[in-house]
Design a protein around this nucleic acid. Sequence first.
DNA 1: CTTTTGCGATACCTTTTGGTATCATGTAAA
DNA 2: TTTACATGATACCAAAAGGTATCGCAAAAG
Lengths: 105, 105
Amino acid sequence: MEPLQSAFRALADPTRRGILTLLAQSEMTIGEVTEAFPMTRAAVKKHLTILEEGRLIEVEPRGRERVNRLRPGALKPVSDWITQLDAAWDDRLADLKSAIERDLQ
Amino acid sequence: MEPLQSAFRALADPTRRGILTLLAQSEMTIGEVTEAFPMTRAAVKKHLTILEEGRLIEVEPRGRERVNRLRPGALKPVSDWITQLDAAWDDRLADLKSAIERDLQ
DNA sequence: CTTTTGCGATACCTTTTGGTATCATGTAAA
DNA sequence: TTTACATGATACCAAAAGGTATCGCAAAAG
């Protein structure tokens, strides 16, 4: 999937945002993440897969465990998109403003 | 729905992000928005409703038309959430760094 | 070696999502 | 007033999402 889309998709679910908040405190195994949510390990695993597809986290196999970790700079594309939209919006407001000033003369 | 959730949900669909990009250029009626996408007016209207629920746009009835417009500051809660996550992540990295430096002594 | 434990994968179910088609309604225009 | 037209609303459909239960496997512990 398109990178930006998979990132936005990953962020759309409250459980997944909760997982990201958790992982911001400390890297964790799937089992540890599961303890923080009222659902089965299989469900949490699915969320982690979607977060991985969105390149928001990375997973490091460690023996029979798998450690999940926030990816540095993972949210950059998302915040860039937002910034760009804001900028376009501001530009338009500025255009409106100058057009009005021109009309007033 | 929770405001942050409805905003993230609204952003999760590529068509809706496309609509936001469109509206950043100019406010538009539903019919005008529809011309830009390969789907029916009813489908576009649903997307606009979800964008409105996410408080990302506002709608002003004008005669028999309805003008859709980007809401100023609409994306603030979203970018704030991202900023906060980034900050928590940076803090943790800083903690790790100082812990390592302490261990080396 | 045997047992436990942490995980992956799959089948299955229900709800939500994204779309269409269709009809009703209010406003503008002739 | 009659006719057009932009929109609202609803019923309906297929696919995706979010969840459970269950099986199998490999690594760690005994």
